[in-house]
């Protein structure tokens, strides 16, 4: 069972291939959003002397994250799945963050305009990801009695938790966490793949302004 795993949500473009659940190839670049994604896929396949035909599944981070990176990554993933007629596993940024350190935890990410994406992952499960003002979420975290970890994709919250050892800023989704999140996530098929879009979660700023 070979799985191709793509993450174009942030400054690092990550391409991984797993064989029977363990990592067998990787190609990670820090570059402009996902511009070299397909070359990276080719490189990763070449290192294990595989071809796209050998892939059984594709997993891709669908967001939230970089608008253009995700458009490129999700389009690449769903087109590959469409041509190869294989299932696709959508991965959510905050779930991958949570998979990197274990639960319970709070996962965070800047959503622009003083807002953030957040989710509270308890030992028994995850709360739905939501959007709220950064101040509100900070206050909620400070009053959480069970707090053990605060994981952020980016470093917006750094100064809100100075010296707090539970806080960790991450500039990329770690490969191990991507693989782990992939094992826990369900796959989609057929028409669901074609209609897959990135999780932008919020309307674009233009639309927000227009609806005022």
């Amino acid at each position: 069972m070979q799985t191709l795993l793509l993450d174009t949500s942030g400054p690092f473009t990550t391409v991984l291939i797993t064989k029977d659940g363990t990592l067998s190839a990787s190609c990670i670049l820090r570059d402009r959003p996902a511009e070299h994604l397909h070359e990276q896929i080719q490189t990763a396949l070449d290192t294990i002397h595989s071809s796209p035909r050998d892939l059984n599944r594709i997993a891709a981070v669908v967001g939230p994250g970089s608008w253009t990176g995700l458009n490129i990554g999700v389009t690449a993933a769903k087109t590959l799945a469409q041509v190869l007629q294989i299932p696709l596993i959508p991965l959510y940024t905050l779930d991958v963050l949570a998979a990197s350190e274990g639960k319970p935890s709070w996962t965070l990410m800047n959503a622009g305009r003083s807002q953030c994406y957040y989710a509270q992952h308890s030992s028994s499960g995850s709360a739905e990801m939501a959007v709220a003002p950064i101040d509100t979420v900070t206050r909620q975290i400070h009053t959480d009695p069970d707090l053990t970890r605060i994981l952020e994709y980016g470093d917006t919250f750094k100064e809100r938790f100075p010296g707090n050892e539970m806080y960790r800023s991450m500039d990329r989704l770690p490969p191990d966490a991507l693989v782990q999140a992939m094992h826990a996530a369900p796959g989609i098929q057929g028409a669901d793949i074609k209609s897959l879009t990135p999780v932008y979660l919020q309307p674009s700023h233009v639309e927000q302004d227009a609806s005022r």
């Binding site: 397909h38 458009n71 490129i72 389009t75 690449a76 087109t79 590959l80 041509v83």
Partner: peptide, 19 residues
Amino acid sequence: MLSLVVGVSAAKSIALACD
């Protein structure tokens, strides 16, 4: 730019997967 990259990504996936 933001539009072009979408078609380019789809085309590259097809070229890669269909060889």
